[in-house]
């Protein structure tokens, strides 16, 4: 059994990536489980084609619900479960995750799956949200980032969290990749010591599939974007043990952007021409 948790800045494409990777693995006939850990409960919609009642919601009326009440089977035989959590502004999502995942792993023989993906909300914010990594439920972390400063900043925060938890990352997925921004992500990857295992360009197909509550693997299996997702999925499947990242200081982080921008000016290659 292999397992990853997907972390990254809010809205960066974690859930899109998680569901597409899950579909790609399912298509390879691997028994795959996608665990949505976001209170929004929107991680599995592309796999299941609909919103399902989250586990914590089910547990409000039944403290010991049977597996069938929260585990569902979707496209390519991929299994999906949403942990769920409170509405924004009340309660404690972190506590929800601790309780929900605890119950899930008590009920489900996780070892019987070939691959398990945890889709985690935003970055590591509190002890509760870090539970997936802390307790070793996911053997390593996949970091998603674009080339925007705030996104790399969030990626670095994740690295900080992982380094203090002594938890490994297996790689970075560079999403909404652009020819111009590539060097920033590459430099970041080099400095924290975590490889980029794949890039996805901005893709209308991906967006469109999301709207239809489907994955591109199902909708356009032969498209370029599908192949890129499959490539990432294979990397994950064949990955070696991850590595604990070396997080950067705030100054080092800004340096990446300043240095590279200055470099491109002095060598005469404008941003446009690169």
């Amino acid at each position: 059994m292999r397992s990853v948790a997907i972390y990254g800045k809010g809205g960066i494409g974690k859930s899109t990536l998680a569901s597409n990777i899950a579909a790609a693995l399912g298509e390879m006939n691997l028994k795959t489980l996608l665990v949505g850990c976001d209170p929004k409960a929107d991680s599995t919609t592309n796999i299941l084609g609909r919103r399902v009642t989250p586990l914590l919601e089910v547990m409000r009326s039944n403290k010991n619900p049977p597996v069938e009440s929260f585990l569902f089977r979707g496209v390519f035989g991929v299994y999906g479960v949403e942990v769920g959590g409170p509405e924004p502004g009340v309660g404690c999502a972190g506590r929800g995750l601790i309780v929900g995942i605890g119950h899930l792993l008590g009920k489900l023989d996780i070892g019987s799956f070939d691959f398990v993906i945890f889709d985690v909300p935003a970055d590591i914010l509190c002890g509760g949200l870090a539970i997936v990594v802390k307790e070793g439920y996911a053997e390593s972390v996949l970091i998603v980032t674009s080339d925007e400063f705030m996104s790399i900043y969030a990626a670095n925060n994740i690295c900080l969290g992982l380094s203090s938890l002594k938890a490994p990352s297996c790689g970075i997925v560079y999403n909404k990749a652009t020819p111009r921004g590539k060097r920033y992500v590459e430099e970041f990857s080099k400095r924290v010591g975590i490889p980029i295992i794949g890039s996805l360009p901005y893709s209308e197909e991906l967006r469109w599939a999301d709207k239809l509550r489907k994955t591109v693997i199902e909708l356009s299996p032969n498209s370029g974007i599908s192949h890129l997702v499959k490539s990432i999925s294979l990397s994950l499947l064949r990955m070696e043990d991850g590595k604990i990242p070396d997080p950067l200081s705030a100054r080092e982080l800004e340096e990446i952007f300043q240095l590279l921008t200055a470099e491109s000016r002095t060598c005469g290659c404008s941003d446009e021409s690169s």
Partner: peptide, 10 residues
């Protein structure tokens, strides 16, 4: 109870 910790208890 745990439910109120997660979903809020107001």
């Amino acid at each position: 109870s745990e439910d109120e910790l997660i979903f809020g208890g107001e």
